[in-house]
């Protein structure tokens, strides 16, 4: 009987087979690097120190072009967030009545928010009002609107980063591979492949979902514009984002961690994953309890089933 249950359960999991194939299309980017993440696996959680470093990279590097509209400062202080505190640090000498586990009262969150200028509402004469940020504010965008963003970035609109990890196939590994995979960077080729010409204002990356066919130099093509025999178009494509982490120590870590390109990339991707899935830790923790409960319950119900049916031939 259990055999049949297992068979049924196996069939029930079949849609997983489809899940992977729904995205095959366009170009031939290089497969992203399989990186080890602190948050992966059944029990994976965020490394808070890493999230803090990642935030530092985001703030120093990414945020000059990329918005993160769905994240509020207070989220940084929520359980699982980069600056969550269980209790107020003693060295800050805060009053006993302050509850630092409350994101709105968290001193780090308040300081980070105050560092931004927020334009919200109007003053008494009807003019737009600017004020320092509060924990309840959302991260302001670097550009006033999409047109301004495109003008400043050679016609490309830098995507919002709130959900970037979930909005790309294998998001963590993809973003990590992309930002460390430019020519000359640790995970990239030594140089731009010689078969292609990269247009001015664009950057080649083997992990980008683009197409290098249109970039092929004339000597590798026949009269009809097809590849000559034996010539392969290189992986990836070119796009308008300059290497954001072009050299070591663009960010100097406050905690003294070695600021290599790979380290900064890993940290910022960890932060971006938190931005996309702030509930991850709570979700996995609850999942553990739910599954334990269900397995125990299934065992009890199965035993009852055997007991009740013991005298029925079926």
């Amino acid at each position: 009987m259990m055999r049949r249950v297992l068979l049924t359960a196996g069939l029930a999991a079949l849609p997983l087979l489809f899940a992977g194939n729904a995205h095959a299309a366009g170009g031939h980017p290089k497969e992203p690097i399989e990186h080890e993440w602190h948050s992966q696996g059944l029990f994976g959680s965020y490394d808070q120190r890493q999230l803090q470093r990642g935030y530092q990279v985001y703030r120093t590097v990414c945020s000059s072009c990329h918005s993160m509209k769905l994240v509020a400062f207070r989220h940084l202080g929520q359980p699982g967030g980069p600056y969550h505190l269980d209790a107020c640090p003693e060295e800050l000498g805060l009053a006993d009545t302050v509850d630092c586990s409350d994101p709105a009262a968290n001193p780090f969150v308040k300081a980070i928010a105050a560092d931004f200028t927020i334009t919200a509402g109007v003053d008494d004469s009807g003019d737009p009002l600017s004020r320092p940020g509060l924990p309840s504010d959302y991260f302001p965008s670097p550009y006033a609107n999409q047109q301004q963003a495109m003008l400043a970035n050679g016609g490309a609109n830098p995507p919002d980063m709130s959900l970037l990890v979930k909005a790309r196939e294998d998001g963590r590994n993809y973003i990590y591979s992309l930002i460390t995979g430019y020519p000359g960077l640790p995970k990239g080729p030594a140089e731009i492949p010689e078969e292609i010409t990269v247009p001015p204002g664009q950057y080649y990356n083997p992990y980008y979902h683009g197409d290098t066919l249109s970039l092929m130099k004339a000597e590798y093509l026949d009269e009809d514009g097809h590849l000559l025999p034996g010539v392969h178009a290189p992986d990836g494509g070119s796009f308008k984002m300059a290497p954001p982490l072009s050299q070591d120590c663009l960010v100097t870590y406050e905690d003294g961690t070695d600021c290599t390109v790979e380290q900064m990339a890993e940290d910022v991707v960890a932060f971006l994953q938190w931005a996309a899935e702030p509930e991850l830790e709570q979700r996995k923790r609850m999942g553990g309890f739910v599954l334990l409960y269900l397995f125990a319950f299934a065992g009890i119900v199965y035993a009852s089933y055997r007991q009740i049916w013991r005298n029925v031939e079926h």
Binding site: L42, R283, G287, L291, V301, Y302, S304
Partner: peptide, 18 residues
């Protein structure tokens, strides 16, 4: 049916939580 429902819930929970 109860046993089958609980077993199915295990599959469901695996998706929802993991």
């Amino acid at each position: 049916d109860g046993f089958a429902i609980v077993a199915f819930m295990i599959l469901y929970a695996a998706f929802v939580f993991y």
